[in-house]
Design a protein around this nucleic acid. Structure first.
Lengths: 157, 157
DNA sequence: TCAACAGCTCAGGTGGACTTGAGGTCAAGG
DNA sequence: CCTTGACCTCAAGTCCACCTGAGCTGTTGA
């Protein structure tokens, strides 16, 4: 009843490919027991874990960051409420920021961007704090994006 | 007064690097006039455009998709309300989906995932439609993620 | 007018996230 | 037993989103 899962089963049930599951293991995102014959056997809890990984990855969080967060969870047993709570505490802010960015983007698509105010510097949506910017100054939005350059990719030196 | 911007100015004001701006041009995300000496000169509207590009890219929308959306905008003049509206119509859904995914992730981080229901298949958050799934069936969440495989990367063949 | 700085092209490199292939091992059914 | 399909480990390849460097040309302000 508490069957262990083979890598193929995990792959099927998460929608990932088998090599991807192995790759995630190599990146420290999950761990597996081995059979005497060296094959991986997974606990059901990896399904949950992988669902979180794919969700996070899809919205652009780098695997290393996910792995870092997971590093605080127990590798061997299924995480309990307190474990997830700790993970969540460190993570929620980032996710919230991401959501805020998306909502700003949606706002731009919807309205402000077509509202006729031609100067990016003065646009309330691109410049949420409404900090008037002199010539040559970056908008707040841009500074936000840059400071988030903790996230790899898209950095300006 | 309607000064044109050099690539360096554009870079400074968007927080991107100069090569990145050129790269975006090569990917069809923007266009530039050239001086007699072959240097790029930009209209102020590229700032807005680039802000949208970076916002989209940061949340994981591939440049090709952004380019495809932009392809419906005029390349030469600043887009007007109607232009943006058309773009928006095609795009908003995708952005909404992304937001929904993020919110689900946040929900997982916050609560459900630590709620004690150990089966991914039966978890309401991973399985929002509450479609009970028999052994071996993929969760709805996973199917959603896979069908979104229009987005490159993370596909399972 | 001329240095100094900004820009240009083009080729090649990097890092992240996977995929593919070669060559071999394990395990379950007949 | 033995075949067949799932697994194993490497190593190498691919795609995307950039960055870096070489070698050369434009632009501008003292």
């Amino acid at each position: 009843m508490d069957r262990e899962l083979t890598i193929g089963e995990v792959a099927r049930r998460t929608g990932l490919s088998v090599p991807t599951v192995r790759y995630y293991e190599s990146r420290g995102l999950l761990s597996a027991r081995r059979t005497p014959g060296n094959q991986r056997r997974y606990d059901r809890s990896v399904l949950r874990r992988l669902a979180v990984v794919t969700a996070a990855a899809r919205v652009g969080l780098p695997l290393a960051e996910v792995a870092a967060a997971f590093a605080e969870l127990p590798a061997d047993r299924a995480p309990d409420r307190a474990d997830w709570f700790r993970l969540s505490a460190g993570w929620r802010r980032r996710v919230d920021e991401r959501i805020a960015e998306l909502e700003a983007l949606r706002g731009n698509l919807d309205g402000c961007i077509g509202c006729g105010c031609l100067s990016l510097d003065r646009c309330a949506l691109f410049n949420p704090g409404d900090e008037a910017t002199a010539e040559g100054t970056e908008s707040r939005w841009v500074r936000r994006a840059r400071s988030a350059a903790a996230t790899p990719g898209r950095r300006a030196p």
